[in-house]
Design a protein around this nucleic acid. Structure first.
Length: 809
RNA sequence: GGGCUCGUCGUCCAACGGCUAAGAUGCCAGCUUUACACGCUGGAGAUUGGAGUUCGACCCUCCACGGGCCCACCA
């Protein structure tokens, strides 16, 4: 009985024998270099990690079989919000230094756990090329990349409205926020007007707490109700500042009163109008989400201020109506708190200007599946703001610049001094070369995590130190990643490598779909449809999961968790094991010759060998196109339904005979040949089971075996055995079709027996066959086989126009 | 509102514009057959609807319907 526990043993065996190391000194074999997602070190491996780990490992193993010098490193994304938030939850009131230490501790603990789990999955990465984003070495490389970008004028520092999370006290970027529907009150507020004709204008707002930062009122230019107001000034209630009434096309006449107050900044639309009309800036909310420049409301939280101001408006009789509406608000995806827009001094990478160029570079990459490139195009087309790369956090790569607090002049750190934390190092100059100010400060903010991960292809290829390797291996061969992070990881990687190297980051980009719960929705805590990989491994084994990933359809499809497919995978592995055991027992009794015997091959032997030759070609092609589905399906179907269900049954009568005939030798040879070579072809996908089964036959690893080679046949009568082409005059039709025909006769006899409700091995007195001229020769040479396989005493064979068959029991 | 994407047996999932639309699972009818009942044999079962291009359409075009994703709006 096959024991999935044996999987653990092989993981250790491979590691101890250092079987999957990259050889940097080897200049003969071509390099194949793989960029995989560095997981966030926030906990344990989850279901979402399984598909890409299984998928890319199979490709790595295939490429090694094909003679490539494979560099498969694995990295770890250790920094950023997820880890910080976890540490914040567990420890309160730590100093900055202690907090940082705890983050490192936490990330390290998770990294080790996740790495172990990944190795358990059979991931054959080379540990020596591991990268960890929180390491000094990684910081040095990221800082160098930023300095190089700054030298090219691609980085700037600016006071700019950014999306801000008051809970995390940091700026965040567009892809880190998501929308949720909330119901809130829309408040109708009267603004007095200093004019003889008009007394007031009514605006509708959901954010009355922003009144103190109101800088204008906007109406639609085509709105006749308000045309006479345009250009006049209104007085903001409670706070009393005078604001201009302006018009803009973007104002919706049908929403609220058709008049909108513009505050700095209530939402993104405000920020757009602020720039468009060059409005005054009133900082309204501080970094903790409390009101500033707000008179008596100074220091209140947004929530407190909202109700207090509503109360005062009611008292002043300026609130004419409140209605409940549903609208969506942006929340921070890491902590689920509402996002504000505040103006803050941040670092930016020029992104807006490069969207067209980026699309051109993206087109040079082979996207698999091809339609996913559209997601990148859609995102690139919507870039409105440059990429804010700084975060007001602690656990991240330090930004390697000092700057002039007065004119924002940037002073980069010396490249030899990296890694550096400029906030604790004296600046190289004490006077700003641009404005002469002495107000030069180091940066305390750290990098967005996508800054860390957006140059992984460069770093694994040796940049910046190993120039020789880099020259040989960049752009890297392939990256695998989820379709969900195209607009982040893929986008920023293509952007940064384009700006730094003027090249694409990788030749091929594999995009895997998401793992869905049994209910068809994404696995999510709140849906309660999550599944722990540990339980799946326990129930089905690792190779069942790996095979499931391969046979569950195109890589880009979302994959619904499916017990039935996992069961199928498990059954297949068992099937291979049982068939191998069967063959082993036979050849233990009489060893097959190493080389094929000269005589003794029957037509069906040559049929299955020729079929294997075809399947090998098909599977090899699919593998080379990174199509594991195609490869796995071709191999599984061949092995189970052609080799096991037909061929093995077909030769039983020969191998059970006691005499050591040439015919038996040929059958044993063929059984062994097909089984072992199929196993090699399956090994990339189910390495543990393949290794376990192979160990029944060999002391050496299956990964040391030669990958079988397809041989082009030069005529229909030729066939291949063990990579050699043989010619035969047994039949005058190609062997694949000849075998198909003989198996059709077997199928038809089985059918007859099934209809008569007989056992399949029930003896038959005589079988009468008529076959067309073309097939006569085949039927004639197969008489012996048919008798043996079908347990027939006598066969009467005749030529006729039509194929027909009848049985006498 | 705009864009993208998908729609194939009950379910999952394939098919360079070209054989009778593949396979799995489930279902039905059988089979103790000396590797495997987690097996084997057989059976029923599908291109969302409409129009067009073509000798020929699951595939290309248009329309409709129905999922999914993204963007915008939401003051």
């Amino acid at each position: 009985m096959y024991d999935p526990e044996s999987e653990k043993k092989w993981n250790i065996y491979w590691k101890e024998n250092e079987m999957f190391l990259f050889d940097e000194t080897d200049h003969k074999r071509p390099i194949f270099i793989i960029d995989t997602p560095p997981p966030n070190t926030t906990g344990e491996l989850h279901m979402g990690h399984l598909p890409w780990i299984s998928y890319i490992d199979a490709i790595a193993r295939y490429k090694r079989f094909k003679g490539y010098n494979v560099l498969y490193p694995q990295g770890w994304d250790t920094q950023g919000f997820p880890v910080e938030l976890q540490v914040e939850k567990d420890y309160k009131g730590l100093s900055k230094e202690d907090f940082y230490k705890k983050c490192v501790e936490y990330a390290t603990k998770n990294l080790n756990k996740m790495k172990e789990q990944m190795l358990e999955m059979g991931a054959s990465f080379d540990d020596r090329y591991e990268y960890i984003t929180m390491s000094d070495d990684y910081h040095r490389k990221i800082q160098l990349s930023l300095i190089e970008m700054q030298e090219k004028g691609l980085i700037y520092l600016a006071d700019h409205p950014v999306e801000w999370c008051p809970h995390c006290k940091s700026s965040i970027s567009r892809e880190e926020s998501e929308d949720v529907e909330k119901s809130t009150a829309l408040n109708y507020i009267d603004f007095k007007i200093e004019s003889k004709e008009e007394k007031s204008i009514m605006i509708a707002t959901t954010r009355p707490e922003m009144l103190h930062a109101c800088v204008a009122i906007m109406v639609n230019p085509s709105d006749e109700r308000y045309s006479k107001f345009i250009g006049k000034e209104a007085i903001v209630p409670i706070f009393g500042q005078k604001v201009k009434i302006l018009s803009d096309e973007s104002i919706d006449k049908d929403f609220g009163t058709g008049a909108e107050m513009v505050c700095t900044f209530g939402d993104k639309h405000d920020a757009e109008l602020y720039y468009k009309y060059n409005l005054k800036l009133i900082k309204s909310i501080d970094e903790d989400g409390r009101l500033i420049n707000a008179g008596k409301y100074e220091g209140l939280s947004i929530k407190e201020a909202r109700s207090a101001i509503i109360d005062e408006l009611k008292t002043l009789n300026l609130l004419s109506k409140q209605e409940n509406i549903k609208h969506s608000v942006k929340i921070h995806d890491r902590c689920s708190n509402e996002v504000e827009i505040i103006s803050s001094l941040q670092w930016f990478v020029k992104t807006k200007d490069f969207s067209e160029k980026l699309k051109e570079y993206a087109k040079q990459i082979k996207w698999i599946p091809s339609n996913t490139i559209q997601k990148l195009f859609d995102w690139a087309d919507y870039i409105e703001w440059d990429w804010n790369i700084s975060r007001n956090r602690v656990f991240g790569t330090p930004i390697p610049f000092w700057y002039c607090a007065d004119c924002h002049y940037i002073l980069p750190a010396d490249k030899d001094s990296l890694p550096i934390n400029t906030s604790s190092v004296k600046p190289p100059l004490d006077t700003c070369p641009k404005c002469g100010s002495h107000n030069i400060v180091g940066e305390e903010k750290v990098c967005d995590v996508w800054v860390d991960s957006s140059i992984t292809p460069m770093i694994i290829a040796g940049w910046p130190d190993n120039k020789e390797l880099f020259k040989r291996s960049f752009p890297v061969s392939v990256r695998i990643q989820g379709v969900d992070i195209i607009r982040t990881w893929a986008f920023y990687t293509i952007l940064r490598t384009m700006l730094l190297t003027d090249d694409k980051p990788f030749e091929n980009l594999l995009l895997n779909g998401m793992i869905l719960g049994k209910d068809g929705r994404e696995m999510h805590k709140s849906f309660g449809n999550g599944i722990n990989p540990k339980d799946v491994i326990k129930q089905y084994s690792i190779d069942s999961i790996r095979l499931w990933v391969a046979i569950s359809g195109d890589i880009g499809n979302d994959k619904k968790y499916s017990d039935s497919l996992l069961n199928y995978s498990k059954s297949f592995i068992l099937k291979v094991y049982n068939s191998a055991m069967f063959i082993k027992n036979l050849i233990d009794k009489s060893m097959p010759p190493e080389e094929p015997p000269e005589k003794g091959f029957e037509l069906l032997d040559i049929w299955i060998i020729s079929r294997f030759n075809e399947v090998l070609k098909e599977a090899d092609k699919y593998y080379s196109e990174f199509n594991l589905y195609g490869a796995a399906m071709a191999l599984v179907n061949f092995y189970w339904y052609e080799f096991c269900d037909y061929y093995i049954e077909d030769v039983k009568y020969r191998v059970y005979s006691d005499t050591e005939s040439m015919s038996k030798k040929a059958a044993l040879y063929t059984l062994n040949y097909i089984m072992i070579n199929s196993l090699v072809l399956l090994a990339p996908i189910m390495p543990h089971a393949a290794e376990e089964i192979n160990s029944l036959f060999s002391d050496s690893s299956i990964f040391n075996r030669k990958f079988p080679e397809y041989k082009e046949l030069d005529s229909e009568q030729s066939y291949t055995i063990n990579g050699y082409i043989f010619k035969s005059s047994i039949v005058n039709i190609d062997y694949v079709n000849a075998g198909k025909f003989v198996n059709q006769i077997i199928t038809d006899v089985r059918k007859e027996k099934a209809q008569k409700k007989l056992a399949l091995n029930a003896p038959i007195k005589s079988l009468t066959l008529t076959v067309p001229e073309t097939y006569y020769e085949i039927a004639r040479v197969s008489e012996k086989d048919l008798k043996g396989i079908l347990n027939v005493e006598k066969i009467s064979l005749a030529k006729a126009d039509k194929y027909s068959l009848s049985l006498e029991i």
